[in-house]
Design a protein around this nucleic acid. Structure first.
Lengths: 331, 331
DNA sequence: TTGTAGGCGTTATCAC
DNA sequence: GTGATAACGCCTACAA
């Protein structure tokens, strides 16, 4: 059926369609009486501005694409936060799910940018670092996590500093031998955490068995443990997420290693299952939804030519559980 | 920057804008030579039709809203499948994340329908069963899982029949005492599985300790076990998903119950962690992405006034693991 | 086989 | 303070 138009509202209110437009956009000078009548009538007949017409006239599509990978559960919460902010800012957020390598995603992103349909693109799944919007496109591409000009990781997800706290605390508990199962290094967040790990291990003079990359999946964690040479010392495993950590746990069980004597392990993301494994998994809780909001705020601010005010509150906190064994009290 | 328009293409090609439109839409009669030239020029200058103008003219927004809850990880894969199909059919899929009760989501859905911006709405998170689009709106509302007129559950996700197989196989292994930790009954899929559970238990003359509802979270599973009266017989727990199942495992560990003597348990969804717990969790793998595709195909077909051809291939299969103990061989 | 013209619902410019 | 009027880019009768 036909939706009412602003012209219908005008007709009923006995004013010109222009006036209705003024009222709805808060522009121009309209008397209070007229404004009130227009608003009332608009509401009563269920008038909603037609987005297509509006964007045709304003030449702003009001659409933002959000690029997701397909496999990572936490991305759903990022998307939820991002979509919320986009909507509140009057944008429609469309999610595009692209499997494959960052390069493949990069092509897709470039194509979307070239399509001219989108005012902006938020990439949650990793794309190549040097992705530049095509010539003459004014589509803004904002990665949810990235590096700044000095190669410092930035963005709400890229904060790996808590890895340092994890390592320090475990070192304080007497652990000396560490290993980092890091996740795919296409992810800025993974690289950021690896960098912090490396720095912390060196600073504290600890022994590191190295960085083990691979996928985000549990099997990577399991294999990492199975392929480790036999150790005398307890190994402290810093895993890049909880899936890797549960794989580590499984690998340890298969080797007959027990916690916390032979091995301790930390995860990341605070996936629900980690609180219910035996032993439960020490992890870092990440407020993904808020991270999604912040990333989208950055994009929306850029589109409005505003500066995004930097947000202060940290999005992460360590949750100590059984997988790290007993620790000395205090911080 | 300004995108080229069909008029630009026409000008360069030395034809009228009408001809360009005909070529692009495959309508009208255009000579092969003209068609080829137009297409070549369109491609060379990067022409893309402007969606806003098109939808203004055709009066079809080309937008579909997908309603998600915020908390359920598997919904990401449903969304991925749904978005893929929508896109291939020329629709833009926008995800809306609404926390809260089905009623609250229902209000949001109705508001979206009334906005006139969407041609269709796909609800992945549950909404009230009797949700009807507002008077005079031609927005189609399709739930990803629902009931038909005979109260049989339909839709790709609502198939609970494998619960019957699970129960049968465990009964064949000698189990007699069952309990179902079912998940929130706002979910059609949860209700469908509960119904199948109840039917199977009765048909096989088994003892059921009942249905335990609550949330989808692991804590519900844990509490269910902790609150169970002491049992002589082994309890076979049919859990509504893997999170519930890992909670069951944790609860059993806290009670000092061991598998498979005191308890066996099955999950649902084939979440990755379930293969790496100790014991690993018997579960049902669900092809969520394909389920999302099918749900969206239904909606898109309805929008095109096509009939969706029913899809045959099952989306689920049981994966037997350690949490159900040894089973007699054969099916 | 191709071209002309009108309008979809908005916003924005300019007169009154 | 308010109202005509002209686009925005596309599709589609209808005319040539």
């Amino acid at each position: 059926m036909n939706m009412p138009t602003s012209r219908d509202v005008a007709q009923i209110a006995g004013v010109s369609q222009t006036t209705v437009s003024y009222v709805l956009n808060g522009r121009g000078n309209v008397s209070d009486a007229t404004r009130a009548r227009v608003l009332e009538i608009a509401a009563s007949i269920g008038y909603r501005p037609n987005q297509a017409a509006r964007s045709m006239r304003t030449r702003r599509s009001g659409r933002i694409a959000v690029i997701m990978g397909a496999g990572i559960d936490t991305h759903l919460r990022l998307l939820a936060g991002a979509a919320e902010v986009a909507q509140d800012a009057g944008y429609a957020a469309e999610s595009h799910h692209v499997d494959g390598t960052p390069d493949e995603r990069g092509h897709r992103v470039l194509d979307l940018a070239a399509s001219g349909q989108y005012e902006g693109i938020l990439t949650i799944a990793p794309v190549p670092d040097d992705l530049e919007p095509p010539q003459g496109s004014d589509c803004l591409i904002v990665p949810a996590a990235t590096f700044d000009a000095d190669l410092h990781s930035v963005g709400p997800l890229a904060d790996g500093t808590l890895i340092g706290d994890l390592v320090e605390r475990l070192a304080a508990a007497g652990h000396r031998t560490f290993v980092h199962v890091s996740g795919p290094d296409q992810y800025v967040s993974a690289r950021a955490r690896s960098a912090v790990y490396t720095e912390a291990v060196q600073r504290l003079g600890l022994h590191s068995l190295g960085l083990i990359g691979g996928g985000w999946g549990a099997e990577t964690g399991r294999r990492a443990i199975l392929e480790l040479p036999a150790q005398d010392d307890t190994i402290a495993v810093i895993a890049g997420n909880d899936d890797l950590a549960i794989g580590v746990l499984r690998g340890a069980a298969e080797r007959g290693w027990t916690l916390p004597d032979d091995l301790v392990v930390t995860g990341w993301d605070n996936h629900e299952f980690g609180a219910y494994t035996t032993p439960s998994i020490t992890t870092v809780d990440v407020d993904f939804r808020e991270a999604g909001r912040r990333a989208m705020r950055t994009l929306v601010a850029a589109l409005g030519h505003d500066d995004a005010q930097p947000e202060e509150r940290g999005l992460m906190r360590i949750i100590w559980r059984e997988s790290t064994g007993p620790l000395p009290s205090g911080s």
